[in-house]
């Protein structure tokens, strides 16, 4: 869900580096680039995101970027998850400690 939300926040053309940075910024923890790609690959396999290859650039040692974007199915899944979380939080006593 964190990866999906990061993709939404970044908008069109998001790729590995900004997604990793966004998760690190929002969570305050270090994130492995390889783990982000593993999550992205799982999401793509489920049809929640799509990807396309960009052009190779010199700053990346001549390697291309892989851009990701959320599909309609991904948005539906996110809305469902949001609803579930809101319902789960409802009626809980205030967290202490």
């Amino acid at each position: 869900m964190m990866v999906l939300l990061s993709l939404l926040r970044l908008g069109e053309g998001a790729y590995g580096v900004p997604v990793t940075n966004e998760i690190e910024k929002q969570s305050g923890r270090s994130v492995a680039v390889g783990s982000v790609y593993a999550a992205l690959e799982r999401l793509e396999r489920k049809g929640l995101i799509t990807s396309r290859w960009g052009a190779p650039t010199a700053e990346r040692g001549g390697r291309a970027k892989k851009h990701f974007s959320v599909t309609a199915g991904g948005l539906k899944e996110l809305r469902q998850a949001q609803k579930t979380l809101i319902n789960l939080w409802k009626g809980l006593p205030e967290l202490k400690g």
Partner: peptide, 9 residues
């Protein structure tokens, strides 16, 4: 390849 590019960047 994308991971290698990201790490280089």
């Amino acid at each position: 390849d994308a991971i290698a590019g990201d790490l280089t960047e």
